[in-house]
């Protein structure tokens, strides 16, 4: 089955992304790796839907894509506001 190869490739990529998320070094590397992990989860769900013959998994993949996008944007907004605040404090201190 060709699905085996694709699923193994996606799982290995998820492991690599997880390693990048663990070793960092900055918080943005971690956000990038988690975003990548999310997209790979969507792909994995889509392939798994065909692999085990249950097309309803595609709905899960679509939902996961939506949640992943919103989550990444929310985390980035949080860190962006924090960086802006620390920049403003530095300017005040000068």
């Amino acid at each position: 089955m060709i699905y085996y190869a694709v699923i193994v490739a996606i799982l290995v990529t998820m492991a690599l992304a997880l390693a990048r998320a663990l070793i960092g070094p900055t918080v943005y590397d971690r956000v990038l790796a988690v975003n990548m992990l999310g997209t790979k989860t969507v792909l994995l769900l889509a392939v798994a839907a065909f692999f085990i013959g249950r097309p309803d998994f595609l709905d899960l993949a679509l939902t996961y894509a939506l949640i992943n996008f919103i989550g990444v944007l929310a985390v980035l907004e949080f860190f962006r506001v924090r960086a802006q605040r620390s920049l403003a404090e530095e300017k005040e201190g000068e």
Partner: peptide, 21 residues
């Protein structure tokens, strides 16, 4: 599917081994 799996794997290796963000 095979070529797609290959590119996914290459991107994962690149994300782990590239030098900066």
């Amino acid at each position: 599917l095979t070529v797609g799996g290959f590119f996914v794997l290459v991107g994962g290796i690149g994300a782990l081994r590239m030098p900066d963000l």
